[in-house]
């Protein structure tokens, strides 16, 4: 597979206020091309695509994209090359946002990824690509420095049976706020999604942090890690 930087199309550039430059790493050609098409149609600039981790690193070095989409499993060993490449990219080019696409719901991988710095990190189930609007939204969010954690992962952690946990004392509203925080949403976004005022969201956040015994964290990305760590315990 060759490294193929995309020519910038003039029409698309005019449409998007800020055209995000994206690199896609995915070994299945059909899916890779489908993604390129979808993202391009959504107004993103797919600067290049790669079929394995080495190609991906070369592309990132050459193109310095805003966002990298990487499948976790890629040749040659079909294990966690994508994840390792993501970590490498974050180490060498910390400003680059990375979304790791996974076919598993494994918090182990997620925490490996978040451990460095959760800003601009996404861990998303591969099947989310079908919901194009949500998916492009996730890309824009990580590009803006937010964290994006797949709702499936979060809901599994929230739904875990627990004994004698302060989580049982949370109200339904508070739980919903907690889950959205764990997905990496900002207060603003949570307010939009739950149809409440940002002020109410702040109240809920303060109260649930107190119940869980967590220190209130002003920055969203710290909040994500704190909440996820709490849920995973």
């Amino acid at each position: 597979m060759s490294v193929t930087p995309d020519p910038v199309t003039a029409g698309a550039a005019a449409r998007a206020q800020v055209r995000l430059r994206v690199v896609i790493a995915e070994d299945t050609v059909l899916l890779r091309e489908g993604l390129r098409r979808v993202l391009t149609d959504a107004g993103l600039d797919v600067a290049g695509t790669a079929g394995d981790a080495d190609q991906l690193l070369q592309l990132v070095e050459a193109l310095r994209p805003d966002v990298v989409l990487a499948d976790i499993r890629m040749p040659p060993t079909q294990t966690t090359e994508g994840l390792q490449a993501a970590l490498e990219i974050r180490r060498r080019w910390p400003g680059t946002a990375v979304i790791v696409l996974s076919q598993h719901v494994e918090t182990e991988h997620l925490f490996e990824l978040l451990a460095t710095d959760p800003r601009g990190i996404g861990y998303v189930l591969k099947e989310r690509v079908a919901d194009i609007a949500q998916f492009t939204d996730a890309i824009r969010r990580v590009a803006a420095g937010e964290s994006v954690i797949d709702p499936e992962v979060v809901s599994r952690l929230v739904a875990r049976p627990r004994r004698d946990s302060p989580l049982e004392t949370l109200t339904e509203r508070e739980l919903a706020v907690l889950a959205l925080m764990a997905e990496g949403r900002s207060n603003q976004a949570i307010a939009g999604q739950l149809y409440m005022s940002p002020k109410t969201v702040e109240t809920h956040v303060g109260s649930l942090f107190a119940k869980l015994g967590l220190l209130p964290a002003a920055e969203d990305h710290r909040r994500v890690l704190a909440v996820l760590t709490y849920l995973r315990r």
């Binding site: 059909l30 489908g34 099947e127 690509v129 079908a130 919901d131 194009i132």
Partner: peptide
Amino acid sequence: VTLSLALGM
């Protein structure tokens, strides 16, 4: 996944 993507489009 590819099918889902195509269906989404």
